[in-house]
Each structure stands twice: as structure tokens, then as C-alpha cells.
Simulated assay, not measured.
Amino acid sequence: MAARHLRSGLPLLRAHLAQGSRGFASQVANPTGKDIKVPEALYGGTGNYASALFLTAAKANVLDKVESEISDVVAASKKSSLFSQFIKDLSVPKETRVKAITEIFAEAGFSDVTKNFLAVLADNGRLKHIERIAERFVDLTMAHKGEVKVIVRTVIVS
């Protein structure tokens, strides 16, 4: 049942991004002239958002900056209980959430890609998923750079 709801929301996400109504998916000059593709397929709501952010940041050639800014947002949500409560509280009217997010991150000097992405999340009531979206976005940027996550375990025998 939940998968059907996630899939039914995908066309809405694509429509928002295609329209560029919030400026998130506005046309960005692509300096390489190549089509940019997501390095690995991600599924579910958080995967869709992470993929959309990756494509927009890659086209704008600001992947590292956006990765840093999204990590800063996650760190702020962990550090500030007030901010964490704000992003998780859906009782806050949508307009208030969007306005607050836009003003906070404009004042912080975040890139347009990040500000617009966070505004889309606020508008859609998805800010509460920012940590998982950020994790998946980092996975995409690592795959794009050819980096691989590894876990090294050692055993010390005495």
C-alpha cells in the first residue's frame, strides 16, 4: 500500500520540477554540453528527491557545495531541538514553513539550488525526511566521483 502512495506522488514531483514553479528545476547552463544522468537508481520518496537534487546540482555544477550545505542542514537539525521540531511539525502552515526556510537559508548564504530544494521539501511537507534524503544524495555524489564506501574490520590477536 505504501509503495503505491510513493509511486503516485512521483508524477507530482516531476510536474513540480518540470514546471520550475519554485525555481528549483529552472534551466541551468550545462557547461559540459552532455546530458547528466543519475549514477545509480534510487527508489522511494527519498530516492526521488535525492535524485532530483543530484541532477539539478550537477547541471548547475555545484555538487560539492550542495552536498556541504545539505550536510549543514542535517547537522543543524541534530544540534537544535527547536529547528528539528520545526522541520518535523506538519501543523505549521505550509506558507509559514516555506517562508521561514527560504529566509533562514537565504540569510545563511546557501546556493539557489539548495534554497529552492529546501523550499520544495517544506512546501510538500517532506522536511522531516531531510536526513535520509541527504544520505542518499551523498551516495549519489560518491558514485558520481567513483568513490566507494567500505567498512574495514580488523582483529587483534594477543
Score class of each variant (00 low, 15 high):
H129P: 06
A76H: 02
E40P: 09
K37L: 07
D35C: 12
V157K: 14
G23Y: 07
A18L: 13
A2E: 11
I130W: 01
L42T: 07
L82V: 15
E40W: 08
D89N: 15
A50R: 05
L13Y: 14
A52R: 00
L17W: 10
D123Y: 12
K79W: 10
L42S: 05
V38A: 12
G109D: 09
P39K: 04
V138E: 11
V138T: 13
A3L: 14
H144R: 15
I130Y: 00
T56W: 02
S111T: 10
L53R: 00
L121G: 03
A60T: 02
S68M: 03
A3W: 07
L90Q: 15
K115E: 07
A106C: 11
N48C: 11
M1E: 11
R7L: 15
R126E: 01
A76T: 01
V73L: 05
E40F: 13
G33F: 11
N116T: 13
I36H: 10
G23P: 07
N124E: 09
I70D: 00
M142I: 02
A29Q: 11
D112V: 11
L12N: 13
A25Y: 05
V157H: 12
K94G: 02
P39A: 08
E95S: 11
G44K: 05
V150A: 06
M142H: 05
I87Q: 00
A106K: 14
G23N: 12
I156Y: 00
I130D: 00
K128P: 00
I156V: 15
I101E: 00
K88T: 14
K115F: 06
M142Q: 10
K99E: 09
K37R: 02
G47Q: 05
F105M: 07
E69W: 02
M1H: 15
Q85H: 15
E67P: 03
T154D: 08
D72S: 08
V74P: 02
A15S: 14
L42F: 06
G20T: 02
A50P: 09
S77F: 01
S91P: 03
V74D: 00
H16L: 10
L140A: 01
L42I: 04
G44A: 10
E135R: 08
D64G: 00
E131L: 04
N48H: 13
F117A: 03
Y49Q: 03
V28L: 09
H129I: 14
G125N: 15
E95G: 08
V138L: 12
A57I: 05
Y43E: 00
M142Y: 09
A119D: 03
T32I: 04
K99T: 09
V157E: 09
L17R: 09
Y49V: 06
K99M: 09
L121P: 01
M142D: 13
T56V: 15
N30G: 10
N116R: 12
A2V: 10
F86R: 03
L90V: 14
A25F: 03
N124W: 11
F54M: 05
P11A: 06
